[in-house]
Structure formats: structure tokens, C-alpha cells
Amino acid sequence: MTSRVFLVSPAMSGSLRRAAFDDGAPIEEGGARRARAAAGSLPPAGRVLTSPSLRCRETAAALGLNALAAPELAGLDVGRWRGRTLDEVGAADPEAVARWLGDPDAAPHGGESVRDLCGRIARWLAGVADTGRTLAVVEPEVVRAAVVHALDMPVTAFWRLDVPPLTATELSGRSGRWNLRLGHSPAAPDT
């Protein structure tokens, strides 16, 4: 059986706009409006999931989805950096940020490394392989990790993948071999 996994990134939130590590901020009204306008544009799925963050849960609700929060789809755990902007962390500890961005095994923030996130998402994808359709509203870094795994890319490519707000990434495959479909947008990206 061919599996299809649709990964939708959250609508714009204040933390996304400020390039802040998730601080629990809700989605902005413009992002909610775009998500509501896109309701019904996503394909039906046997499983509808969301990252546990507020912005992903609110995006799922605005899209009209009855989604179950899945802890395994949580965004990258950035430990003590949570809620701070990349600029703030970079000014306070530029070597730690450089190490984190350059070494997928580094976790100077005390949280999860990029390699660990990629491994966690690879295990999740293995669990949904050959099970039909799954739709999940997930953090941008979860989309990156899924694409890295699906295309068997080196983990160092993680930071080279951009995931705009409120866009869909589709993976399809069977028996652990995934294909990537580019270009689907349930709504115009937030600006």
C-alpha cells in the first residue's frame, strides 16, 4: 500500500516572525485568516495529527482539522534557548550558536541535537509507512527532518531547507522508500 504523508507548517505567529525559538505564542490573526481560507483544501486522511505546540494546534483548528496532538512530532527541543530569539542567543553565546548550526550532533542549549530530531522523525515515518494517509500540522523543523530522511540526505542539509508558514509538503511511498512532492500550498504564505 502506498502511504501519503502531508506535513503542513503552522501559520505565522509572533515567535516565527521574530525568529524566536517557540515561546508558546499563538498564531497571528492574519495567519489564522489564511488557515481558515484554506480549510477544506487538504486531502482527507485516516490520521490527523499535530505537533503539541500552541501554534500547530491553533493552525490545525483554523484549518478545520480535528487533530490529535502527537508528542513524537514535537519541534526541536532547544532547551534553555526556548523563547529567545536567534539574535539574542547569538549575541550572548556566538560560539554555541555556530557549533549548533554547523554540527548536527551539537546541543549546546541542553536540549535535542538536530541529528536526534532527524532520528526521531525517521522512526515516526517508519511507523506510518504502508498505512494509508496521514495529515500532520507540524513545526518547520519537523518538516525539514522528514525531508532529510525521505531523500536520504546528509543531516548537514537540515539548515538548507526553508519551510514557509502554512505550506504543505507531501511524502509518498511504500516499503520505506519515500518520494517528495513539491509545490503544494493550502493557502498563500504569510508575509
Rank of each mutant, 00 (worst) to 15 (best):
M1F: 08
S3Y: 00
V8I: 11
S9K: 00
A11W: 02
M12V: 10
M12H: 06
S15N: 10
L16A: 13
R17M: 13
R17W: 04
R17H: 11
R18Y: 01
A20E: 11
A20F: 05
F21G: 15
D23P: 07
G24H: 03
A25E: 12
I27R: 13
I27P: 13
G30D: 10
A32F: 04
A32H: 06
R33T: 08
R33M: 10
R36M: 14
R36W: 02
R36L: 12
A37I: 04
A39G: 15
A39S: 15
G40M: 15
G40L: 14
G40Q: 14
S41Y: 09
P43S: 14
P44L: 02
G46W: 01
V48N: 05
S53F: 12
R55M: 09
C56P: 11
C56R: 08
R57M: 11
R57V: 12
L63Q: 10
G64N: 14
A67G: 02
A69W: 00
A69R: 01
A70M: 05
P71S: 06
E72V: 07
L73Y: 02
A74E: 00
G75F: 03
G75I: 03
G75L: 05
W81Y: 00
W81F: 01
G83M: 00
L86K: 01
D87H: 02
E88R: 01
E88G: 04
V89G: 07
V89M: 07
P94L: 08
P94E: 04
E95C: 04
A96K: 06
R99H: 11
G102S: 13
G102M: 08
G102A: 12
D105M: 08
A107T: 06
H109A: 14
G111S: 11
E112L: 07
R115N: 14
R115W: 04
D116T: 12
D116K: 09
C118M: 12
C118R: 10
G119H: 07
R120I: 12
I121C: 10
R123K: 15
W124C: 14
A126G: 15
G127D: 14
V128T: 15
A129L: 09
D130H: 15
D130E: 15
T131W: 08
T131G: 15
T131Y: 10
R133F: 02
L135R: 05
A136T: 10
A136Q: 09
A136M: 13
E141A: 13
V142K: 05
R144Y: 04
V148G: 12
H149V: 03
M153S: 09
P154L: 02
P154G: 04
P154Q: 01
V155Q: 03
A157T: 05
F158K: 06
F158S: 09
W159E: 07
R160T: 06
L161V: 13
V163P: 09
P164V: 03
P165C: 09
T167G: 14
T167E: 12
A168S: 11
A168W: 00
E170Y: 02
E170W: 01
L171Q: 05
S172Q: 08
R177H: 03
L180Q: 03
R181T: 07
L182G: 06
G183N: 02
G183L: 06
G183T: 03
S185C: 13
A187Q: 10
P189C: 04
P189D: 01
